[in-house]
Design a protein around this nucleic acid. Structure first.
Lengths: 325, 325
DNA sequence: CTAAAAGATGTTAGCGCTAACACGTCCAAG
DNA sequence: CTTGGACGTGTTAGCGCTAACATCTTTTAG
C-alpha cells in the first residue's frame, strides 16, 4: 500500500480512504490514486484489513451438509456479499442433529470474532444452534427458515404463496385431480407449501388435492408417485415439494408406462440444477439462494434488519401441460 | 493471546509455539498452556496469524461452478486441510470458458498472497488458468485432471483402472452385451473411462461394448439409454460415465417398461448424492473428493509433491445383478 | 477581508500474531 | 571442572492495514 502511496504522491492513509470509498477525498486525488492502483494491479490484503479493524468486520457461515448443491450456492452468494461490504467470511462446519457439535461450531465462530452468522438450512431450525448464537451475542440471519427466536432476521421465500401460485397454475391448465408430495415434517416450509397448495385447490369447485408423505429425497418422491398413480382415480398432475422428489415422481410416471406431460404433469420446487437436468425439464419455483446469502452478508455487515419475504420466481418448463382429456 | 500467556505464566511466544505445535516446548509447559486454552476457549485469530506470517501461509481455491455438489465437497475438504496445516484459504470465483475472467481470478489470488492454488474441475483442464498460475509463480494442485503443464501436481483417481474394475464386475456377473455412455469429450477422464471399459471387454471372448455419446448430464444419459435400448440386440447392462447419466439411463429403462436390475443392470461413476438417492440405488465408483481436496491443501502447505493416483472405491448397490437369462 | 467552519490530508499507534534472534539453563565430553 | 552445544523460553520488531486525532487547506458567512 505504501508503494501505491508513494507512486501517487499521497500518504498511505489516503490510499486506504480511496480503497474504502471514503467520501472525504478530493476527486482529483482519488483519480490519481485509482490510476496507480489500476496500473499496479494492487489488491489490499484482506487479512491486514480485518486485523486493523480490530475484531470487527467478520461474519460467519455455518454449514452442515457438505455434499449439497445448495451449500455451494449459499457459499458463493455469501462470499460475494461479504466482499461487497468488506467483510471477512469465516466458514465453519457444523453437524445438524448433534447439539454439542452445533454449539462448538458457534463457539468457534464467536471466538474467531464474528459479529454475525449466516445460518442456512437445516441449522436454521435447530434450537441448539440458535440458542448458542443468542448466548454468544452474535447477530444471525437464518435462510429459508422461520424466526424461531427473537432477534433473528429471516430470509425466505413465501413458501405458502409460491405453492399456491404453482397449484393455481396447474388448475389454470385444467387439472382438477392434483397429487401433492409433502416434504419432511420437521421443516416448517413443508407445511407452508402444503397449505398453499390446499388453499388454491379449495378455492376451485370440484378440484381435489391428494397428499402423500415424502422426505425431500428422490426415493421418497418415487414411492409417493407410485402410490398416487396406483389410485383408482389417478391424478392428472403431481406437485412435489422439491425438485428431487419431482424427479422421483417423474421416474415413477415413466415406470408406470405413462408419459410426462402427456399423461401426467409434474411440478417441483427450488429449481436446483436437477430441475433443468432431468427430462423432461421441470416446471418449478426458483428460490434465489445465492441472492439470499448475499443479502444475509450485507445485512450482517450493515447491521440492518431488512426482514421480509424474498421474491421467488415461477419457472415454466416442459413437465407441465393441460390434461390430455 | 497475551491473556493466555499471563494465565499460564509464560510469554505470548510460548503460547504461539504451543498453538502451532512447535516441538521445542517442554511437555510440562505445553500442558499448562493447553489447559488454559481449554478453559478459556481461546481460538487464535486467523487474520492476525496470516498477517504475521508475512504473505506466507495462504493458499487459494478457485471455483467455477457454484451450483454443484462437487464444489461443496471440495470446499469442506480444502477447508479442513488448510486448517490442519494452519493455512488461510482464499476462495475465489472464476468462470470456466472465459479466459479473461479466469486470468483475473488467478491474479486476485496471487495479489492476495496465495502461494498455491487448488484447481478443481473443470478449471484444471483450462490452459488459460493453468498458464496464469504458472506465470504468477504459484504452485498448483489440480483435482481430477491430468497434468497439462510441467510442475503441476495432479490428484486424481485412476479413471481407466476404475472403469476397468466396474466393467469387470459386470462381466463377472455374466453380462456380455454392455452399453457404455461416454462423458464430455473435452474432459480427459471421459476417454480414460471408456478405454478402461473397452479393455475389460476386449479381454473376454464374446463380450461387446456399445458406446454412446453423452455429456455428463442426466438428459444425455436418458437419451443415450434410449438409443441403447432401441438396438436390435439389447445390452443387459449399461455403464454410464457418471451418476447423473446413470440416473438418466435408469429413467430410460423404466420408460421402456423394463426394470432394474431385473432386465437391465445400470452402473454409474462418482458416487454423488444422487447415486444413493435414486431408486434403485446405483452401483458406482466413489471418488474421495473431500479427501483429495484436503490432500491438496496439505501438499500446498508443506510444499510436498506427493503425486500419484488417489484410491477409488467400488460401491455395489442395488442397480446391478446377473442377467436374468 | 477576516474568522470560523468545513473539507482534505497526514501522523501516530496498534490490531493479534509470529520470525528471528537473544538469552538463560542444563547436559555431555574433554 | 570447564566449555561448547543443545534445548527451552523470552524479547524485539514488524506483517499491511485502519481508527482516531492532528494538521493543513479551502470554503463560507459576517
Amino acid at each position: 500500500m505504501s508503494d501505491i502511496a508513494r507512486l501517487a504522491g499521497v500518504s498511505p492513509m489516503t490510499v486506504s480512504r480511496v480503497v474504502n470509498g471514503d467520501a472525504r477525498v478530493r476527486a482529483a486525488t482519488r483519480e490519481k490514486v485509482e490510476a496507480v492502483i489500476r496500473e499496479t494491479g494492487y489488491v489490499p490484503d484482506p487479512a491486514a484489513r480485518i486485523l486493523a479493524r480490530a475484531g470487527g468486520g467478520r461474519i460467519g457461515l455455518l454449514y452442515a451438509n457438505p455434499s449439497n448443491a445448495y451449500l455451494a450456492e449459499v457459499l458463493s452468494g455469501a462470499l460475494e456479499g461479504a466482499r461487497s461490504v468488506g467483510l471477512l467470511l469465516l466458514i465453519e462446519p457444523s453437524r445438524a442433529g448433534a447439539p454439542d457439535e452445533e454449539r462448538e461450531a458457534v463457539r468457534r465462530l464467536a471466538a474467531g470474532g464474528a459479529q454475525g452468522v449466516i445460518v442456512p438450512p437445516p441449522l436454521g431450525e435447530s434450537l441448539a444452534t440458535l440458542d448458542a448464537i443468542a448466548a454468544s451475542g452474535m447477530k444471525a440471519v437464518v435462510l429459508a427458515a422461520p424466526v424461531m427466536r427473537d432477534g433473528l432476521v429471516s430470509l425466505r421465500v413465501d413458501d405458502r404463496g409460491a405453492a399456491h401460485e404453482m397449484t393455481q397454475y396447474l388448475l389454470d391448465l385444467g387439472h382438477r385431480q392434483i397429487g401433492f408430495v409433502e416434504g419432511r415434517q420437521d421443516q416448517s416450509a413443508s407445511a407452508d407449501r402444503r397449505q398453499g397448495a390446499q388453499a388454491a385447490v379449495d378455492a376451485i369447485d370440484g378440484a381435489v388435492l391428494w397428499a402423500e408423505a415424502g422426505d425431500f429425497t428422490y426415493r421418497s418422491g418415487f414411492e409417493a408417485g407410485q402410490r398416487l398413480l396406483a389410485r383408482s382415480q389417478r391424478p392428472t398432475a403431481i406437485f412435489a415439494s422439491n425438485d428431487d422428489m419431482a424427479a422421483g415422481v417423474l421416474a415413477a410416471v415413466h415406470a408406470a408406462g405413462l408419459s410426462t406431460p402427456g399423461d401426467i404433469s409434474v411440478a417441483g420446487f427450488d429449481d436446483t440444477y436437477l430441475a433443468a437436468g432431468v427430462w423432461p425439464t421441470l416446471t418449478t419455483i426458483r428460490q434465489p439462494v445465492a441472492e439470499m446469502a448475499r443479502a444475509a452478508a450485507v445485512i450482517l455487515g450493515r447491521g440492518g434488519e431488512e426482514d421480509g419475504p424474498v421474491p421467488h420466481q415461477f419457472v415454466a418448463r416442459e413437465s407441465t401441460a393441460s390434461p390430455s382429456d
